[in-house]
Design a protein around this nucleic acid. Structure first.
Length: 589
RNA sequence: GGGCUUGUGGCUUAGCCAGGAUAUAGCGCUGGCCUUCUAAGCCAGACGCCCCGGGUUCGAAUCCCGGCGGGCCCGCCA
């Protein structure tokens, strides 16, 4: 149990007691975080006004006079119709710091819940490199997974690989039919158009050139179109040669994507291939179960659907088709089989999806209910990232690749580090500077993505992506590096959590901020509000920097050990926040 | 056309679901702070009809209704 929730419990019972004494026992009230300084929790008295037939201000005065500060409650006051409570800072400071030192990296985390949570994220079609338009998905998904682990759950992250369908078949046709020379020419042209010297030598970038050429040729050449259509037919008929080729190409592309994901600290526990649900017959099973349902119907051509109008789906989207007229399954049918499968191995299923999937996800949930499945996936939607000039498109080449963004951010970080080491006259090695530049550049990218609520539209701007000041990833990392530097310079010290030595307002404020961590993790993980986490990290950083600026830790006589202990605790919490954000925690920068 | 979503200082953004005190923070802007623990920092300041109009309420950025602007979706695609 965290310190602040103990405090809240005491406030609740104090107010209940006071109401009882005032002859209004059982009256409902809320406890909230005050927006004014000098109070740690507040109880608004406006709602009690009617029942007590008294002005809120008078109620607050009356209740305040009936509460004796005790336990963790240091003071009670009546202001503007609110009951304001201040926490007793001494036990708070000691309690929180002792807890951080006792728990180590587990501080803030909840005990094991035994709940199996599956987080599906990224799942981009293996037809081209990841671009910033889609980059929100892995960052949101990975951050959420890290939060959920800290909420005590057994988390599995999973990538659903779409190796079925026209797009991968076109790519496969391209890989088999477009010559390396032709692809190279395409790459050069594309590089020129996007302002690069040359395209990078990386599997996914090499393969996507063939995909682009294949798309162009298909549009202009009916013969190519026929070949691709033939491949599609053979694929759906279960031709093992075609399926094998497609799988091989998709694997190669996926290797490139995995490499990119790994550089931004995203690794997934499991890759599930869509074709598997055709092979193992579970998609067919879904078909026969849906056909047997009372909502099933069939078009004149023989395509099958279920009508979802009783499931809250509006307008002309109520017919959810699950087989073509030739009887073959559709993406959505296989997605049903996939979700049924996920629920056999998870208690809670979360899908991180682009906003274009909203209707599809609703239909999926309705179909699962028709199938009598108990579990329903929880979608987490994000809006697309666009460029100032408009939407990104792999095929048109209007795109900023995540790999390019990473390079740019790392280079920018390197320049910053180099100029700083010069100013400071430190002798950091070239290798070390490069290493830290990676941590800082990648941290900036991840932070920049999660700091905004997922549903908000996001226009990609280099100036924002490369902002290393203020509300940025490097700002948090800087605090960690500063704290490490101080602890390095301090040498050995004896841990001291004596609150009488930590009574400066900035010290108390820093501890209060550290005390909030577990609540933040709960909201960010279980509540799926991951943007709370970067905001919290920013709060910790601000509190630390204020403390840093107001006292000279290494030169503070009898308070030195206590202050160093606070520095250590702040650094450890910040290190965990950074890790939860999938960012590195550099010891110098 | 219908559905979903979004609109908060010049720009970006928190708060909205569970309505309450002077609306959060960053960039940018103005002015201060490095002989002393990393100035990627700290301090002070200016900048807001919380898209518009109604309604509910003692009280609305928040809830309801109606507009307007942006985004997404409405395939026997994936």
């Amino acid at each position: 149990m965290s310190f602040m929730s103990d405090f809240e419990d005491q406030v609740r019972s104090a107010v209940s007691g006071a109401l009882e004494a005032a002859g209004a026992g059982g009256l409902d009230f809320t406890v909230e975080l005050p927006s004014v300084e000098g109070a740690d929790l507040a109880v608004p008295c406006f709602t009690m006004s009617k029942a007590l037939r008294k002005a809120p201000a008078a109620i607050a005065e009356d209740l305040a006079s009936r509460i004796q500060p005790s336990g963790l409650i240091a003071s009670v006051g009546a202001v503007n119709g609110y009951l304001n409570f201040a926490v007793d800072t001494a036990p708070m400071v000691k309690g929180v710091l002792d807890e951080i030192l006792r728990c180590g990296p587990c501080y803030g985390s909840a005990p094991a819940s035994g709940l199996r949570v599956n987080v599906e994220h990224t799942s981009t079609n293996p037809t081209g490199p990841i671009h910033v338009g889609r980059a929100r998905n892995p960052v949101i998904g990975d951050t959420l997974a890290r939060c959920l682990r800290r909420c005590g759950h057994e988390v599995t992250t999973e990538y659903y690989v779409n190796d079925v369908g026209k797009q991968v078949v076109i790519l496969t046709w391209g890989v088999m039919n477009v010559s390396d020379e032709e692809a190279e020419a395409e790459r050069e042209e594309h590089a020129k158009a996007s302002g690069h010297e040359k395209e990078r030598d990386k599997t996914d970038h090499r393969l996507v050139a063939k995909y682009r050429v294949a798309n162009r040729r298909m549009e202009s050449d009916p013969e190519v179109q026929a070949q691709i259509a033939d491949m599609m037919r053979r694929f759906e008929a279960g031709d093992s040669e075609v399926i094998g080729n497609v799988r091989k190409v998709a694997e190669a592309m996926l290797d490139g994507l995995r490499e990119t994901l790994a550089t931004i600290n995203v690794t997934l526990d499991r890759y599930t291939w869509e074709s598997r649900y055709i092979e193992d017959g579970s998609a067919r099973d879904v078909v026969s179960r849906l056909k047997a349902s009372e909502y099933a119907g069939e078009t004149e051509d023989g395509a099958c659907y279920v009508d979802l109008k009783d499931f809250g789906i509006q307008g002309k989207n109520t017919k959810f088709t699950f087989t073509r007229s030739d009887g073959t399954t559709l993406y959505t049918t296989r997605d049903l089989a996939y979700h049924i499968d996920k629920f056999t191995r998870s208690d809670r299923v979360i899908d991180v999806l682009g906003e274009d999937q909203k209707l599809g996800s609703q239909q999926l949930c309705a179909a699962l209910r028709i199938l009598g499945e108990e579990g329903v996936p929880e979608p987490l939607f994000y809006s697309f990232v666009s460029l100032p000039e408009g939407k990104m498109s792999t095929r048109k080449g209007v795109v900023v690749y995540l790999d390019d963004l990473i390079d740019e951010a790392v280079e920018h970080a390197y320049q910053e580090i180099r100029s700083r080491t010069e100013v400071r006259g430190s002798d950091m090695s070239e290798e070390r500077m490069r290493e830290i530049a990676r941590i800082v550049g990648i941290g900036a990218i991840r932070y920049n993505i999660v700091r905004v609520q997922p549903e908000k539209q996001f226009v990609f701007k280099w100036s924002e992506a490369l902002n290393f000041d203020g509300n940025s990833g490097p700002y948090l990392q800087y605090v960690h590096a500063r704290a490490c530097s101080m602890l390095r310079k301090a040498g050995d010290f004896t841990r001291d959590t004596d609150p009488s030595k930590l009574d400066d307002r900035f010290e108390v404020n820093l501890v209060k901020t550290l005390a909030r961590y577990s609540e933040v993790l709960k909201a960010a993980g279980d509540g799926k509000k991951i943007h709370m986490l970067p905001a919290y990290g920013h709060d910790v950083a601000v509190a630390f920097n204020q403390f840093y600026a107001s006292v000279s830790v290494l030169d503070s006589g009898p308070r030195r050990d206590a202050r160093l202990t606070l520095v250590e605790c702040a650094r450890d919490v910040m290190a965990d926040v950074l890790d939860c954000l999938g960012m590195g925690a550099p010891e110098e920068m």
